[in-house]
Design a protein around this nucleic acid. Structure first.
Lengths: 347, 347
DNA sequence: GTGAAAGCGCTAACAG
DNA sequence: CTGTTAGCGCTTTCAC
């Protein structure tokens, strides 16, 4: 019985048709069918047409495993999927992952998710790498001291980072990042344009290079506009409670009319303090957050927030990935994208 | 040159070691190495030990593609990853995906993400299925009229649904769901226990079976406690604005002292109305949402919310998947899990 | 218990 | 432009 006889109604065949089935049915060799799929230019138009017809009739699709084995590729991109931290507003990961899935699909890749082992952050990468389960990785958590990028580099594993190699001058891997300082400059200038002069900053602790970078956007814009920053800054942990406290302290001491925050989480804290003090956000005191999280969007008084162009980030990452995997000469090590400002009622 | 000679320092070999490399080095046949990996019981303890040692030395890991080709499996679970809708509070997907990744890993599976085509919701599934890229699917959007479940059933494709087959009595596929009505019963009873008697319901339009199910939890608990529901219910779209409007109307007409909402998004609308009217959430009027989203957690006045046990859902789904893929006799078609109530200041 | 042979479905290399 | 040959690395028979 020919393989193609195993089809049954509208259902999928018991065992899907193979290249050989298509070849036999179309009266060509297997290689010709392969070419019709992968190098259509090599076929005469009429042959191509006939083969394509047969492929459609049989519902043929190349077996991934066989192709992967032969080509030593998987068309899979590995991404460690860490959960959004409970109690914080940052759900940027979700948006980014979706963008990455979309962008990958465009060029024939799929995204493979794997969990992170807290004790050994490298074990997940190692397993996938050694079993050649993925072609490359996208590394998202390039925080200070993260060993993954360095480890992957040392293994000569292809990967692109979302995030600059802040602490590592030796890093030679491609990366894509969002210019946080530029985002905060946008936010600060926006507030200045609205007439504010006493604009406070609530950011993270000093050991966060991302936080310091964002902070510099505030400092710079203030100074560029001839405004003082003295006594207007606070560095706290990234939780609502800390943001609220910092806002209370600043309101009592420096009496700012506006707050720029390193995150939406902190901005929520500010809004809480305003609420307690019967101050109207946007009217009495302006507030700007960072990440344009769902919280910013859904909050009754819409929170103005810096929005990362995650869709573009994903596109750039996939672009870099392709260059990496096709061994093209690397033109640029890093790409820095500009965020935008989602303006709402809070400013 | 032997393959195993291609190792170079701590780095990954240029081309990873194969079964043959391990076999040669350990002085056994390839099959024995394969057994050491897949059927260790078949080996004599000393042989097993020697082979394992060699595997460790070489850093050998079976090539996925070859194994997949041979066993006709992929150890991959396909999941269509739809983006969280902007402007709504629901980021449950994020938490669920993470739970699924974790639960899958436990049993040797990985999660493959693919995008959804709005025009043809089936095309993504079809491609992966026909190319045997995944072993099974997890279907999350089992809304009314969703063709995917029926289509996959017809294709005899293995899949488990997160969500009941509300509209389809013919459905015979395994599913896991959360008992939304029970969650709302919990919420309503909680409010009654707090002394409320005029408890309003803000839910979705009637064509949502999920919404009607949740609503029934409210109706039932009210009636069980001898309380009237007349004039206390509203059915609107799932956006903040609608929730705010509905709350305003209800406050004017029925004067409820508490609101139970079908979603955190609607609850945010209620909170907005309370804020405008200078009513204190939790003190003047109680509010309960659904999904325990980040918004509920981060909101200055913590929003009490029904929390779905997504970690358990993932575990149950993986359990069902394994049964499905090992062709075990199916014991139960569906699993219904109980949500919990995350109690915060708003109630 | 261990080893030899075969082949999963595909594509790279070459011959015609 | 098309066909033939070989083999990717693994696991499933089946001998020994």
């Amino acid at each position: 019985m020919a393989r193609s006889d195993q089809r049954n109604g509208g259902q999928l065949p018991v065992t899907p048709p193979t290249l050989a089935d298509v070849a036999e049915r179309a009266g060509v060799s297997r290689q010709t069918v392969s070419n019709a799929v992968n190098n259509p230019d090599l076929l005469r138009p009429d042959t191509l047409e006939r083969v394509r017809q047969t492929i459609a009739e049989l519902g043929y699709s190349p077996n991934r495993a066989a192709r992967n084995l032969r080509t030593r590729t998987s068309s899979l991109i590995g991404l460690r999927f860490a959960p959004a931290q409970e109690g914080t507003a940052n759900a940027a990961m979700d948006r980014f992952v979706h963008s990455l899935v979309e962008a990958s699909e465009e060029v024939g890749y799929h995204v493979l998710l794997f969990p992170g082992d807290d004790e050994d952050p490298v074990v997940g990468y190692d397993n996938l790498l050694r079993s050649t389960a993925v072609d490359a990785f996208v590394v998202t958590d390039t925080y200070l001291g993260n060993p993954q990028a360095a480890w992957l580099s040392q293994q000569r594993a292809p990967f692109v980072a979302f995030g600059r190699p802040w602490d590592d001058d030796e890093a030679r891997h491609p990366w894509v990042d969002v210019d946080g300082a530029a985002g905060i400059r946008l936010a600060t200038q926006h507030l200045i344009d609205r007439g504010h002069t006493r604009i406070a900053w609530i950011g993270w602790r000093k050991d966060s290079p991302i936080g310091e970078d964002r902070r510099s956007g505030w400092t710079q814009t203030m100074h560029d506009n001839g405004l003082s920053t003295t006594g207007l800054a606070s560095r706290v942990e990234d939780v609502v409670h800390s943001g609220a406290e910092a806002a209370a302290v600043l309101l009592d001491s420096a009496r700012p009319t506006a707050f720029v925050c390193a995150s939406d989480t902190l901005a929520m804290g500010v809004l809480h303090t305003l609420w307690i003090r019967q101050l109207a956000p946007g009217t009495d005191v302006a507030v700007v957050g960072f990440d344009d999280s769902q919280v910013a969007q859904v909050f009754p008084v819409g929170l103005t927030s810096v929005r990362q162009p995650l869709e573009d980030v994903a596109v750039e990452i996939v672009k870099a990935l392709r260059a990496l995997l096709s061994h093209q000469p690397v033109t640029e090590r890093g790409v820095l994208l500009e965020p935008t400002l989602a303006i709402r009622e809070s400013s």
